[in-house]
Amino acid sequence: MSRGTKRGGFLAWLGGPTRGASWSRLVLSIGLFLVAWQVAAMYLVDNRLLLVPFTEVAAALVDEIADGAFASNLYTTVLELAIAFPLAVFGGFVIGAILAGSKPVRQTLDPILTAMYSLPIVALAPLFTAGLGFGVASKVAIVILMAIFPVITNTDAGLRSAEPALIETARSYGASRLQVLRTVTIPHSVPFIISGVRVAFARGLVGVIVAEFFGAVSGVGFAIAAAAQSYQTARLLGYVVVLGLIGLLASIGLTALERRLAPWREES
């Protein structure tokens, strides 16, 4: 790195490993995006139904916050995710572990799981709203169905892909089956599971918003649908920005979690 700091100055520092640099990169990329947005809205896109400047979106968001609507919508969506997502992760882990542990079960369920994973489950959203009502329950159901499959698949793959040589070594040191699981198979599967959780969160977020489109009394998706029906582009985009921030926060959180649970994978 000394080479870089001598010659490259700021750019080299920005590409460096420090915490300050990593936050600076984040701020810089968001800043550049907002500038591009502002320029596009002011000079490139005339259609105000499609795009309005970021400054107007920010103003609409401030109004929404002052009104109290923002907090209640955000609360609903976060609550739905907070109930459904841990259930999906836990359930996906358990089912994935069962699949990894039993070949007949895995082979029997595989076609169904593959079909369900590739199915656009949001297509079921109207059904769930009709069956479970406009409240939290229908959203929780959709989010679980959206999020559980990547966790199942990755847990199964992670638990089954530990190197046979490592397992043989463990056994040669007298490890019991449980010890092999605890010291080899599970640590090996951690990065797989975390990347499954990453995909699961993205899918869960889609699920909760689409489910709220189809029938809700509150929530970010509900607010977006309402704004769209009254052609309030600025308000709509304000909520979309918030969704982007939620995704970003989740990603940062998962990266931190991975660093904690799988420190051996960090770049030196």
Binding site: E168, T169, S172, G174, P187
Partner: peptide, 26 residues
């Protein structure tokens, strides 16, 4: 104790924990 051609160290354990592995299993 068996030593294989590939070192078969646990990538998720530090060097000292790898060396301690057989003992902690016991």
């Amino acid at each position: 104790a068996m030593v294989f051609q590939s070192d078969n160290l646990l990538p998720w354990s530090t060097v000292i924990d790898n060396v301690a592995y057989g003992l902690t299993l016991g």
